[in-house]
Amino acid sequence: MEARGNGLPGVRPRTAPVRFEAEVHPVVALALVAAGAGVLTWFAAGRSKRLGLTPHGGRQVRVKGSRRYRERGTEVTASAAQRLNHASSMLAASVLFDSGLEHYRGQFFNRAMYTPIIASTVTLASSLHGAGDTDPGRSHVRHAVQAMAGVTGLVGFGFHAWNVGKREGGYSWQNLFYGAPIGAPMALTLAGILGVAAERVRDADPDAPELAGLPAGGALAVATAGMLVGTTLEAGLLHFRGAFQNPAMFVPVTLPPLAAAILATAAAAEPGRPHKTAKAGMWAVSAMGVLGVAFHAYGVARMMGGWDNWRQNMIDGPPLPAPPSFSGLALGGLAALELLEHRRP
């Protein structure tokens, strides 16, 4: 109300009936709920396994009578699993902030719009928990949470597809640009898939790890390559909406498919070979995801009013949380390559 002081004579404030504002802002409430759910997940995931002493580093030592770890486990599966959890964390975090921003824009018009916030927080907690878990052997809680995330993403995809279809013009470019982003919920599914894979890899035979009956390294490599291509399509759609006005906008539609192709080829190579190029490609994609945030921050600054107008430009400008989903997938690719490299012929 200090506006009244300077230079607006002759206007008295229209007095509104004073109401005691005790209510919590819905966004704050949502954040609290999500954080609470995340903390619960964290402890739940821990309790399921940590029945005794903590493990001794990465190498599993059976302590007689005090632990119920499974016997199996080597550094390869555990370390690859941790990588997969890193990947899943990054994707879940990307989904958390991206869906938070986009659904804030949509003002949580439908209650279902709260779902991805909670789901991705829980997934994030589970993945972070797994990332710090050097043990082999799956956590059933984490596995269940990741599977739930995968399903939630699919349901979200269905919702978004339905939302786009019922808009004026149906499945048109216009609605793909400005309707609910069809591809976005799939990022949560990808986080779930990588998280589930992490738990399964933990459980797998370290000498010949398998996923769904296939060699784990190869299966993961091909799957990750596919996910990279899918995410490229999403980035391509949005960068097409932005008319590729900056040449840098071509990077996320060219580098990831290239890296994905190399990754997929790696799956076909004989076991145990090093995959330097494929790894370099994954690191490059990973770095691109992080650099993308900086580019998007520059994009926000280029909008009218720049960062001072953040309430508009954070939402209307290039989405800051989106690019790291590429980094997440690249980490998944690195896990796959690790498994491939350590696979015994």
């Binding site: 506006a3 607006l8 009936p17 001072d308 309430r311």
Partner: peptide, 13 residues
Amino acid sequence: YPGYDVLTKRDSP
């Protein structure tokens, strides 16, 4: 639009 005063936006972006 009870309580709405467009002038309260004067110092906003």
